[in-house]
Write a protein that binds this DNA or RNA. Sequence first.
DNA 1: CTGTAGGGTTAGGGTTTG
DNA 2: TCAAACCCTAACCCTACA
Lengths: 161, 161
Amino acid sequence: MAPKKWWTSKEEEALKAGVKEYKAGNWKDILKDPRFASILANRTNIDLKDKWRNLNGGGCVSGGRRKASTSRPPDKRIVPKYKYKTMIYEYLKYIEDPNGTDLDTMMNFLKSKYELQSIFKKSFNAALKALELKGYIKKVGNSYPKLYLWFFCHRYFYHLF
Amino acid sequence: MAPKKWWTSKEEEALKAGVKEYKAGNWKDILKDPRFASILANRTNIDLKDKWRNLNGGGCVSGGRRKASTSRPPDKRIVPKYKYKTMIYEYLKYIEDPNGTDLDTMMNFLKSKYELQSIFKKSFNAALKALELKGYIKKVGNSYPKLYLWFFCHRYFYHLF
DNA sequence: CTGTAGGGTTAGGGTTTG
DNA sequence: TCAAACCCTAACCCTACA
C-alpha cells in the first residue's frame, strides 16, 4: 500500500476555501476550480471528502464532534520535548527541600529560565495525574516530593536523549 | 490496565505465514483465513500490524531495519535473576503501607512464593547499600519506603527484561 | 458512467509496560 | 534503558446508491 500523504496546511486551507465557495459535498467542483486545482493536484474528490470529515471531528460531515486529535504529521509536532528532562533535573538540583515542590513554584522557576511551550504545563500535569492514579506517586500536602519528580523524569523523558 | 499478552511463537509463525499468503497490510484477511483464525483468535488486525512492525525492527512495514531485539517474552528469559523485578513489584503491590518494609519481612514474603537463589538476599542487600551510600535512597526507621524500593528495581533490574 | 455518503481497514504517530 | 505491546486517529479503501 502507498504510504500516507499527510495533509499540508496549504492543502487544508484550500479545502476550507473550497467548501466556503461550493459548500460541503461538491468535492469535484472544488477540484475543478483553478484557484484550488494546483494546490490539491494530488488529492481526489474522495480525499477531500475524507479530510473534511476528519476536520469536523471524524464523524459525519453534518454531525457532532469527537475528542481532539492527538495524531499528527511528524513535522507538525508542537512541543520540543527534548529539554523537559534537563529542565526538571536542573530544578530538582536547585531546590534543597527533599519534601519537594508544588507545581506552581516549579512552573515559575522554569518559565524564568526557559521558553516554555504553552502546552507544557498541561501535558506535564496530565502525566503526573496518570501516575498518581495508578498509585506510583502522590502528593504530600501540596507538593510532590523530589524523589517522585525524579522518578517521573526517569520514566517519561528518557527517550528524549 | 490488562497485563500484556506476549506473542507466542505459534502466533508469530501464523502471522508470518499469513503475510506470505496475503502480503503485509491485509491484516483483516489474515485474521479471516481459517488456517490462522484459531491461532490468532485473541489478536486484532491492529495487533497483527503492530507485531509485524516490531518484527521488522519497529520501523515502517516495508522499510529498513533497526538493531536486533533484546527484549523477550517472560517465558524465554535466560537469566535466573529474571524474576527479581517481578517479585519485588509483586511485593510492593501487596504491602499497603507507603512507609514500606523492612528487608526481613520482604524476604519472608518472597521465600513463601518463590524459589529463591541462595545468593539473592546477599546481593540484594549489597545493591541497596550501594545506592544508600550514594544518597539515592535511605531507610526510614528500620524500613525502606516503597518508592525507594520501586526506584531500586527500576535502577537495577531493567536490563533483565 | 459520474460522483457522494458512510462504514470499514490500515499506517503511522505516540504512550505504557516490563 | 529501551523494545514489545498497546492506543489513537488521520488517511485510505470499499460498497451502496442516486
